[in-house]
């Protein structure tokens, strides 16, 4: 698996898109620091961007990479390599190179701005960790979609829909449910609702850490009340890990049964 990972990673490192993605974060980091002139505020703004953008890029890159390397995958399948190694290697290659672009692209400007002397370092690390989690989750989901759809257009369509649903529509539905049932106790429902969407979960996680949960209104209050900050953090991370493990398991399972 490590060999496949190595080649996928090198392959992506040579592709133009990894650099575009890296350059974008570099620029974003610099501009935000320049405009905000304050590390903590820049972290909050960044969060809003990352929470939406990272899943989108992860989804699109994942689907694109899978379809582009399809013929090569067939070549690998005829070699004495386990199927799970091929697909996990490719998946990790994509997810890790994307995570690297994110970490380096944002890390470099923040480090130069004096991150290590600042109190925002933990908030910033948390931001990068959740960003990495989101990359792992959404690339895995994208691989799942691509594995299940031979038709590229359909695959792309479903991938975009998935992103749209989790990033936008889910929140809308969630909010509507809360308003519709506002006469009932909704603490548990909103808690579960947040857990079930990795994007919401990441957002809540960062906001809790930033101690500005009042901004979040209901969900944040519930989270704070139920878990207290550190327990909530652990539960959220467990949930995020779960969100990575489930689709990865399905990649292994699905790839074993597929015909090429």
């Amino acid at each position: 698996m490590l060999k496949i990972l190595k080649y996928s990673f090198y392959d992506l490192m040579r592709s133009r898109w990894s650099y575009v993605y890296f350059a974008f974060y570099l620029l974003l980091g610099i501009v935000l620091l320049f405009l905000n002139n304050d590390l903590s505020k820049a972290v909050i703004t960044l969060m809003n961007v990352i929470i939406v953008l990272v899943p989108l890029i992860g989804t699109i890159f994942g689907v694109m990479y899978y379809y582009n390397s399809q013929e090569f995958t067939e070549l690998l399948l005829a070699q004495p390599i386990k199927r799970s190694s091929i697909f996990l290697g490719q998946y990790l290659g994509v997810a890790l190179s994307l995570s690297m672009s994110l970490i380096l692209g944002l890390g470099i400007p923040f480090v130069f701005y004096g991150l290590f002397e600042s109190s925002a370092i933990w908030d910033f690390s948390l931001l990068l960790i959740t960003g990495t989690f989101l990359t792992l989750i959404f690339t895995a989901l994208a691989f799942n979609i691509a594995l299940s759809n031979e038709n590229k257009i359909k695959g792309f369509g479903y991938a975009i829909l998935l992103w749209l649903f989790l990033a936008v529509i889910y929140d809308g539905l969630f909010l509507m449910t809360l308003i519709m049932f506002e006469d009932y106790p909704l603490d548990k429902l909103s808690l579960i609702g947040t857990m079930l969407n990795p994007i919401d979960l990441s957002r809540t996680l960062i906001l809790l850490k930033l101690d500005i949960s009042a901004l979040l209104g209901y969900t944040g209050a519930v989270f704070k009340q139920f878990f207290g900050t550190s327990f909530g953090l652990i539960v959220s991370f467990v949930m995020l890990t779960f969100w990575v493990v489930m689709p990865v398991l399905r990649i292994v399972f699905k790839s074993k049964k597929k015909d090429f």
Partner: peptide, 18 residues
């Protein structure tokens, strides 16, 4: 099983490489 493929050389029909 994937080990047995060490004993097979395969030429695919359409050669599409990266």
């Amino acid at each position: 099983n994937s080990e047995y493929r060490h004993k097979i050389d395969y030429l695919p029909q359409i050669a599409n490489f990266p």
